[in-house]
Computed example of a mutant assay.
Amino acid sequence: MGVITFHFDVPSTIPLARMFKAVVLDAGNLLPIALPQAVKSVEVLEGDGGPGTIKLITFAEGNPYKTAKHKVEALDKENFTYCYSIIDGEMLGTTFEKITFEVKINALPLGGSMLKCTNSYFTIGEVDITEEEINTRKEKASAMYEAIEAYLLENPDAY
């Protein structure tokens, strides 16, 4: 098994606490609203939202994937960090054992926040991911956070 890890940052005009609540604490409700073209539903299969919680993500029609199971690995509300893994679903294929996403949200000095993201792909055997594939994955993740930011800007009373 190998691990391919990459980091990227996503700046946001949304304040730290509001962004954390939207992206982490209420993502199950927000994702189908902010990204209806991508996410149909998020259902908690077991747990209370904390570590060990298993969620089933059902993707919208037209996506290459139908479902994914996420497992919450860590949640630290005081330090605004969150870690979850995709543990089952078509996107793992025969290439990945799991994919782990870590997010730390920091306040920016002049307002807003910075999402510091680390994605780790745990491979089955030796797998080579090209720089182009990594950039595509970064762009997709950034687009998700940007869609959430756009929703929050359009809905100032949400969260």
Score class of each variant (00 low, 15 high):
residue 87 I to S: 04
residue 127 V to T: 10
residue 116 K to P: 06
residue 115 L to P: 05
residue 145 Y to M: 07
residue 147 A to M: 03
residue 85 S to W: 04
residue 132 E to W: 03
residue 123 T to Q: 11
residue 94 T to Y: 11
residue 135 N to Y: 09
residue 119 N to R: 14
residue 60 A to D: 08
residue 128 D to Y: 15
residue 147 A to P: 07
residue 117 C to G: 05
residue 123 T to N: 07
residue 130 T to K: 03
residue 142 S to Q: 13
residue 131 E to I: 06
residue 100 T to H: 09
residue 67 T to S: 05
residue 63 N to A: 12
residue 152 L to W: 03
residue 65 Y to T: 07
residue 93 G to T: 06
residue 126 E to S: 10
residue 116 K to D: 15
residue 104 K to P: 01
residue 65 Y to G: 01
residue 81 T to A: 03
residue 58 T to N: 12
residue 83 C to H: 08
residue 138 K to L: 09
residue 97 E to W: 07
residue 104 K to H: 13
residue 84 Y to V: 00
residue 72 V to L: 02
residue 71 K to F: 00
residue 75 L to S: 08
residue 149 E to C: 04
residue 137 R to G: 06
residue 101 F to T: 13
residue 153 L to R: 14
residue 86 I to M: 10
residue 101 F to N: 10
residue 79 N to F: 11
residue 67 T to R: 02
residue 95 T to P: 05
residue 83 C to M: 14
residue 56 L to T: 03
residue 149 E to Q: 14
residue 73 E to Q: 07
residue 56 L to C: 10
residue 88 D to A: 13
residue 121 Y to Q: 02
residue 59 F to P: 02
residue 100 T to Q: 08
residue 135 N to W: 09
residue 88 D to K: 14
residue 98 K to W: 04
residue 120 S to H: 06
residue 89 G to Q: 12
residue 140 K to N: 11
residue 79 N to G: 03
residue 54 I to F: 07
residue 124 I to Y: 03
residue 124 I to P: 00
residue 72 V to C: 00
residue 125 G to W: 12
residue 154 E to Y: 05
residue 78 E to N: 13
residue 151 Y to V: 08
residue 140 K to R: 14
residue 73 E to T: 11
residue 136 T to R: 13
residue 154 E to Q: 15
residue 102 E to Q: 13
residue 131 E to Q: 14
residue 137 R to A: 15
residue 77 K to F: 02
residue 88 D to M: 09
residue 147 A to D: 03
residue 105 I to Y: 04
residue 70 H to D: 12
residue 105 I to L: 13
residue 133 E to C: 04
residue 112 G to F: 08
residue 123 T to E: 10
residue 91 M to R: 12
residue 85 S to K: 01
residue 119 N to L: 14
residue 85 S to Q: 08
residue 130 T to F: 04
residue 101 F to W: 10
residue 101 F to L: 11
residue 138 K to M: 10
residue 86 I to K: 02
residue 58 T to S: 12
residue 148 I to L: 10
residue 66 K to P: 00
residue 72 V to A: 04
residue 110 L to R: 14
residue 124 I to F: 03
residue 101 F to P: 02
residue 118 T to L: 07
residue 71 K to D: 00
residue 112 G to S: 09
residue 149 E to V: 09
residue 70 H to P: 01
residue 57 I to W: 01
residue 79 N to M: 02
residue 147 A to H: 11
